[in-house]
Design a protein around this nucleic acid. Structure first.
Lengths: 247, 247
DNA sequence: CGACTCTTTGAGGCTCATCAAATGTAGTGG
DNA sequence: CCACTACATTTGATGAGCCTCAAAGAGTCG
């Protein structure tokens, strides 16, 4: 990671700019946002269900996950977040956390105080819209995951998840030639797609056997994007990767 | 339904007021919003995936659902909306619909132009926050449904869904003594909880046999709320039914 | 009363969970 | 460099939950 103390701010600005055109003033306001950076090992809770946080968390490096547990202790991961995402942006308007957020790989995150974020939003309504939109895209991904988990079988689900990951990582420059790092265990993948780790293992073997993915440690290569999207019934519409400025 | 031409506006105001305290000016602005009311039979699409709507839809009477189809034509319902909800509020900031919305019972809905909604939000930032919060609660429900579908079995899932429905309908005054109307077929319930209609039928029988619900036509009675919440592992936290004003 | 839709029931099979154990792969300290 | 530990992946076997197909009852409505 760059030593630039403003790297978190720049990451956030780049992310918003991929959708909205920001004025110099807006960019400056974002650049001036105080962001407290900390590093985490994997599997560390960042916020917990029931908390009443006074800050939001911006992912800088690595991946985080949003999860909940059933009363029998089964875990469901509802979302994965990559650098540039703000997994608990909702806490700006919902006092109590209704889910927990944890690092799923070693990662770096930045904390932004709610009051600072609110102040910026008050002065720059277009930034309010931009942040609001971020939470709407998150919601859109939840919907797609509901379809995935509710109505597709494990093989398709996994292919779909890998497609989504590739696209989202590509958007932040973390993919080269269909090749990216996925530092997530099979047990965690199981918690994402709602199956068991044993079954994840078998599904991954099937995907490899069908030539849809190649894996080496935590590295994943997609040799044939077209084929994987077909196997995963993947249509990137729901990611809303372009066109944010209101009509 | 009342003949009052401002009924839709009043419904919206009441909904927001259950969370935020609104000033007279804010209320007046909402009362002045033009809303075009129309009636629908059941199973009618209101907006479709891929559409670029220029208006939002406020549910006035009956229920609507948010759904998507897999390429094999299987349907997953991602959300149910009750009077007072705005199922496609997201379209204010996401140009293209990533899901379809349909009536699931005969219903009345009101359409509000995006431009009108935007104008109100510009003048009253607290209303922006209130609408933003609505979309955040929707997202919170998506997360809970992901846990439900991904990690709980059908019996628990159904109990959970009925708990949620009771609470949400109670919030808009549509429940009396644990008794409410649920004009939804078992096939539709199956699309909600991600199973088959045959299995829904068996699960409902089991719930009846266990004394957790009583049904008569589309009428549902919950004789023992406490027992049903245990069976459904239900914790209403995720509905965020109170406390919206920022700290 | 017939046409339609929805609910209910049965039977067989498939997907996937669970349990348990073996193998593989870092990371640590001697 | 090797033994040792801690995890993660892989494999096998068994069974539970649920799907699908098919057909029979029950409401509901013109």
């Amino acid at each position: 990671m760059t030593a630039d103390p403003h790297f978190p701010n720049i990451l956030m600005i780049r992310k918003l700019e991929s959708i909205f055109t920001l004025s110099d003033e807006e960019k400056q306001a974002l650049r001036d946002l105080p962001i407290q950076v900390i590093s985490l090992k994997d599997d560390q809770d960042i916020v917990r269900i029931g908390d009443r946080p006074s800050q939001c968390c911006l992912v800088l490096e690595g991946f985080t996950c949003v999860y909940k547990l059933t009363s029998e202790g089964k875990r469901q991961i509802m979302a994965l977040h990559v650098p540039g995402d703000i997994p608990d942006l909702q806490s700006l308007h919902l006092k109590v956390m209704d889910n927990s957020i944890a690092s799923i790989s070693p990662c770096t995150v930045g904390f932004i105080q709610h009051e600072d974020l609110r102040r910026v939003c008050e002065h720059y309504p277009r930034l309010t819209a931009a942040f609001w939109r971020e939470t709407l895209v998150d919601a859109s991904i939840f919907r797609e995951w509901l379809l995935n988990i509710g109505r597709r079988e494990a093989y398709t689900r996994m292919a779909h998840l890998l497609c989504e990951f590739l696209m989202r990582l590509e958007a932040v420059g973390l993919v080269e030639d269909g090749f990216f790092d996925l530092p997530i265990t099979q047990a965690e993948l199981a918690d994402v797609i709602g199956t068991s780790s044993v079954h994840v293992n078998r599904v991954l073997q099937a995907l490899r056997a069908d030539g849809l993915i190649q894996t080496k440690r935590t590295q994943v290569t997609i040799p044939d994007w077209e084929k994987l999207t077909v196997a995963g019934e993947f249509d990137p519409l729901y990611l809303h990767l372009e066109g944010g400025d209101a009509a």
